[in-house]
C-alpha cells in the first residue's frame, strides 16, 4: 500500500479555490457566487479571469441560493460560496425547495466547516451540516480530506449533474493524497490495509486516522483506514468488505455524532452486518473559541481520540 506522507500543509479551501481556477479555464458554464467571503473562499483568481461569470451577492445567503437555482435554468453550473454554517442551516428551506426538490444543478460549496474554524467560536462552527444536507433527497454530500482531494472534488462535481454539498475547512492541514488522484464521487478510498479494526474517516480526521493507525501498529494492532469523501451516496460495498474482515469499526469526523458519517455507517452495519462501532465525533455540543488544535483536542477529534476509540471497540469484539 501507498505510504502517505505530508507533502506540505495547506488548507482545503485553497484546494477549492484552485479547483475553481481550473474550472474557470476549462468549463465555460461554471459560474461562481459568493456572499461577501471571496478571500475566505480563495476564489480571487477565478474572479480575475472570469469577471462576467462571478456574482457577488453581498451578505444575503438566501438570495444567493435562489439566484444559483435560477442560473441553472439556461445551462449554467453555479458554485455558491460561503461558510458551512451560512451554506446550510441559514438557508435550509431555500436549498430544500429551490435546489433539492427542484432538482437544480447547484454546487453548494462550504468552507470553514467544524470546530477547526477556530477563534470565531460556535456561532460560526457548524457541526450539524452533514446531517442537514444528507437528509435532503437527491443531495450528494462530499467532505474531502486535504488540499489535493478538495481540488479534485471541486473539478469532479462540475461534471456531475445534480445538487451537491461540498464541505471543506479553514486551517492548513496535511496534504497527503496524490496530486493526480482521480476523484470518483461515491467511491471510498482504502488508504491502509489492516485486519483488527476498520477506521472510517472523513475530512480533517482522515490524516489523524492515518497517524492513529501508525501508532496502533507499534502496539501490535493492525488498523485498516478507509477515507470516505462521499458521505452520500455512501460506498456500502467498501465498508462491508472491510468490516467483514476486521469485525469492528471506528468512525471519525469533525461533526456531531448525531446525523454524521458515523450514523450512516451504523445504518449499513445494522441492516447488513451488525458490528461493534465507536464514534469519534462531537457529542451533541456546540464548539467554542480556541485554536484548531486546542479544539480538536478538547472535543476528542484527533489521532489520540481515534486510538482510544479503537481500544474501546476492540474490547467489544
Amino acid at each position: 500500500m501507498t505510504k502517505y506522507v505530508d507533502q506540505g500543509k495547506n488548507d482545503t479551501r485553497s484546494g477549492y479555490g484552485a479547483g475553481m481556477t481550473e474550472l474557470g479555464r476549462t468549463n465555460p458554464n461554471v459560474v461562481a457566487l459568493c456572499a461577501d467571503l471571496v478571500g475566505s473562499l480563495k476564489i480571487q483568481t477565478f474572479i480575475d479571469e472570469n469577471p462576467e461569470r462571478f456574482f457577488q451577492v453581498g451578505i444575503a445567503e438566501a438570495n444567493m441560493m435562489g439566484i444559483a437555482a435560477g442560473l441553472t435554468i439556461g445551462g449554467k453550473i453555479p458554485f455558491t460560496g460561503t461558510f458551512a454554517n451560512f451554506s446550510t442551516g441559514r438557508v435550509y428551506d431555500q436549498i430544500r425547495q429551490s435546489i433539492a426538490y427542484s432538482g437544480k444543478n447547484v454546487k453548494i460549496c462550504a468552507s470553514h466547516a467544524g470546530v477547526t474554524l477556530g477563534e470565531d467560536g460556535a456561532t460560526h462552527q457548524i457541526l450539524e451540516d452533514i446531517g442537514l444536507m444528507k437528509m435532503l433527497p437527491g443531495m450528494t454530500v462530499i467532505n474531502p480530506c486535504d488540499y489535493n482531494q478538495t481540488k479534485a472534488a471541486t473539478i469532479a462535481i462540475a461534471e456531475y449533474e445534480g445538487p451537491v454539498y461540498l464541505r471543506f475547512g479553514r486551517p492548513k492541514v496535511a496534504n497527503f493524497t496524490p496530486v493526480d488522484q482521480k476523484f470518483e464521487i461515491g467511491k471510498a478510498l482504502l488508504l491502509s490495509e489492516g485486519t483488527d479494526v476498520t477506521i472510517i474517516a472523513t475530512g480533517h480526521l482522515v490524516w489523524e486516522a492515518l497517524i492513529a493507525a501508525e501508532n496502533l501498529e507499534k502496539e501490535g494492532i493492525s488498523a485498516e483506514v478507509i477515507n470516505i469523501h462521499t458521505i452520500k451516496p455512501l460506498d456500502d460495498a467498501a465498508v462491508l468488505k472491510s468490516v467483514k474482515k476486521t469485525g469492528c469499526v471506528v468512525t471519525a469526523e469533525e461533526h456531531n455524532y448525531l446525523g454524521g458519517l458515523g450514523e450512516s455507517i451504523s445504518r449499513i452495519l445494522a441492516t447488513q452486518h451488525p458490528t461493534p462501532q465507536e464514534f469519534v465525533a462531537t457529542q451533541d455540543t456546540f464548539g467554542e473559541s480556541g485554536t484548531p488544535d486546542q479544539l480538536m483536542e478538547k472535543y476528542g477529534l484527533n489521532n489520540k481520540a481515534i486510538s482510544e476509540a479503537v481500544h474501546r471497540v476492540l474490547r467489544r469484539k
Binding site: V31, A62, G66, A69, G70, T72, I73, Q94
Partner: peptide
Amino acid sequence: RIASGSLGQGMSVAIGAALAKKLNKD
C-alpha cells in the same frame, strides 16, 4: 421550472434566470 410554495423564494430564482439570459446573450 421551479418548485414554489414556501414563500419568498421566487424573485431570487427569477433573478438567477435573468442573469443566465444575459450570460447567454438571450
